[in-house]
Design a protein around this nucleic acid. Structure first.
Ligand code: SF4
Ligand code: SF4
Lengths: 137, 137
DNA sequence: ACCTTCAAGACCATTTTTATCTTTTTTAGT
DNA sequence: ACTAAAAAAGATAAAAATGGTCTTGAAGGT
């Protein structure tokens, strides 16, 4: 239930790889795709979207590629996940567009709301910079 | 992202309706479906599964229908949701069968694990009996 | 000019979701 | 025994989402 899609997983892996380079480094799409084991054309779509959203810069032509558009410490995991998967919502009624006629009185609604808030807080509390640091043990 | 399917939503609504009757009451599938606004044939499939799992009893023939097989206070929301949607896992690597070669060293893995634990705890902490009580305000 | 690299959009196979329909089995009541 | 009621089981299927690929075009460097 409620699983991240490949797209979401690839997006996180891709941007973390970018964040592991010195800030400002321009990296080839192909290099990121290979290192993170992501189908290149699929990652291209994801990164095109990231560029539009201002997470990364893209450069065309020889010597082109992608670089972070702002420090990894200023990008949260929630922002990345929501960029590709849409708002975090364990049920329709807690999604932005999700109306349910029962929601005003529904006892289950509040539970989904709590699950949603917990997930949002957890993902908000982690930055790409933290995730990019190599693990210690 | 990570949304409950109709099946999951129907399952919860259906069993709550059953839990609102006095314990042991046998209710027609059609009555539950109508009250909870669920396609009857779809709810039939869900309840067949619930019966197999021992949440409810089913009775065929005239005067048949469904009743809770154990008190609503002993059925948690997590049990109901996992019965229809499978284990709660925000990413493959925290699912029972989900192996990822990176999981041992992956910094993101621990975040998904935390989201998973929080959701599991929240849904574990709510019983169908609580949800079946009419809301107060 | 020419090569490199990303952008954009069309395309497509597979899987999942969301059901419906039909046939069979069980049971209660007469 | 017969009949009607009701769930069980399984086949079928439309629609949507997923997980990509392919082609063409545009921008930039040499
Ligand atoms: S949980 Fe309650 S409010 Fe949310 S969709 Fe279900 S019935 Fe509606
Ligand atoms: S979060 Fe880490 S461990 Fe989990 S699937 Fe992604 S790479 Fe693998």
């Amino acid at each position: 239930m409620m699983e991240l899609t490949r797209k979401g997983e690839y997006a996180v892996r891709g941007i973390i790889h970018l964040a592991r380079q010195p800030y400002g480094t321009v990296v080839l799409l192909g290099e990121i795709a290979e290192a993170a084991e992501i189908p290149q054309t699929f990652l291209a779509k994801i990164f095109q979207n990231f560029a539009k959203l201002g997470f990364i810069n893209s450069y065309r032509g020889t010597g082109g590629g992608f670089s972070l558009a702002r420090p990894a410490a200023e990008i949260t995991l929630r922002q990345v996940v929501e960029a590709v998967e849409g708002p975090i919502a364990p049920n329709r009624c807690v999604a932005p567009a999700g109306e349910c006629v029962r929601s005003a009185t529904c006892t289950v609604h509040t539970v989904w709301r709590q699950v949603q808030l917990q997930a949002q807080e957890t993902l908000d509390g982690v930055t790409i910079e933290e995730l990019a640091r190599e693990e210690s043990p």
